[in-house]
């Protein structure tokens, strides 16, 4: 019996190949394949029926899907900008602190340490229209005598979700921007002072260009994060009321696991991946441009 002789390099790579195939490649291909079938979790035989791009067409022509898509982009835009501005302000303030800065930096990271699910529960309670902290406070202080439906009204619910998102993640920006502030050499800032800059002009012309790479890194990381937002929304509003806070991934999750239409959910998933990829590429391009600007090389 002749033994099959495999090349040595292949044998050495085999463990990695097997693990990667099992964990990444096969699920990826399977999910891609299933997006071309009417696969339903409850009817396994549907996996073998090829329906071409039907799921994709269905998703693209589904107004609900685009509404969720648009809402995700809206959440991304507002949350990232607000977090960036607040994080920048926070970092600039903390940078001025000379005593107890370490403790403050640690404190600043606390919101990041909570599970998003718990943050969801926390804000679900805070914004609850009957027993919630916000309404109670507003009513006790006499600002309002009605129960404001924070999580029921479409705009207010979106606001509440963004608020929770900003609360958790502003510190990501603050920490990264603070690292950027630490990295700025002292000399150009002093040169700017001597050149006649007011503190605001120094910030605008010197500090900010130095910070831009750090801001773009934070934006790139956070855009991936927010584009796959699921947990906070799922807990706080479950995409409701009546789909008014539905985001892409809560919609996909519902389609896949509640409605059991896994093939259709996978098709929507592949479309939305492009959203994440688009933002990542966009911010990395910006990052590289900002680094080149500073002479740090592309």
């Amino acid at each position: 019996m002749s033994r099959l002789k495999l090349p040595q390099w292949f044998v050495l790579l085999l463990p990695a190949i097997i693990i990667l195939s099992a964990v990444v490649l096969i699920p990826l291909l399977l999910s891609l394949y299933s997006s071309f079938t009417p696969y339903r979790l409850t009817r396994p035989e549907t996996l073998y029926k090829w329906i071409g791009t039907f799921n994709y067409e269905k998703a693209i022509t589904n107004a609900n899907f685009w509404a969720a898509f648009g809402r995700t982009v809206l959440l991304l835009t507002i949350a990232l900008n607000v977090e960036m501005l607040l994080g920048l302000g926070l970092a600039l303030l903390v940078n001025r602190v000379t005593w107890g800065q370490r403790g403050l930096r640690t404190l600043m990271m606390f919101p990041m340490m909570f599970s998003p699910v718990l943050v969801g529960f926390q804000f679900k309670f805070i914004f609850n229209d009957n027993v919630g902290l916000v309404n109670n406070a507003l009513q006790s202080l006499g600002f309002s005598d009605v129960a404001i439906p924070w999580l029921v009204d479409a705009n207010l619910a979106m606001f509440s979700i963004i608020f929770a998102e900003v609360w958790t993640s502003t510190s990501v920006f603050a920490i990264l921007i603070l690292a950027g502030l630490f990295a700025i050499p002292r000399d150009p800032l002093e040169a700017a002072k001597v050149d006649g800059c007011t503190p605001w002009q120094t910030f605008r012309h010197i500090t900010l260009p130095y910070l831009m790479p750090f801001i773009y890194i934070a934006l790139a990381i956070r855009s991936l994060d927010v584009a796959r937002a699921y947990d906070i929304v799922q807990i706080m509003t479950n995409g409701g009321p009546a789909r008014r806070t539905e985001l892409i991934w809560t919609m996909i999750g519902r389609t896949g696991y509640v409605d059991a239409k896994m093939g259709y959910a996978n098709a929507m998933g592949y479309i939305s991946i492009f959203l994440a990829i688009f933002f990542t590429i966009y911010f990395f391009k910006k990052l590289n441009a900002a680094r080149t600007e500073l002479g740090m090389g592309g």
Binding site: P185, D187, P188, E190, A191, A192, L294, G295
Partner: peptide, 14 residues
Amino acid sequence: NISMVFQNYALYPH
């Protein structure tokens, strides 16, 4: 109304 030349040049890199 002074100007200063620094040891590390302190040019604005951008």
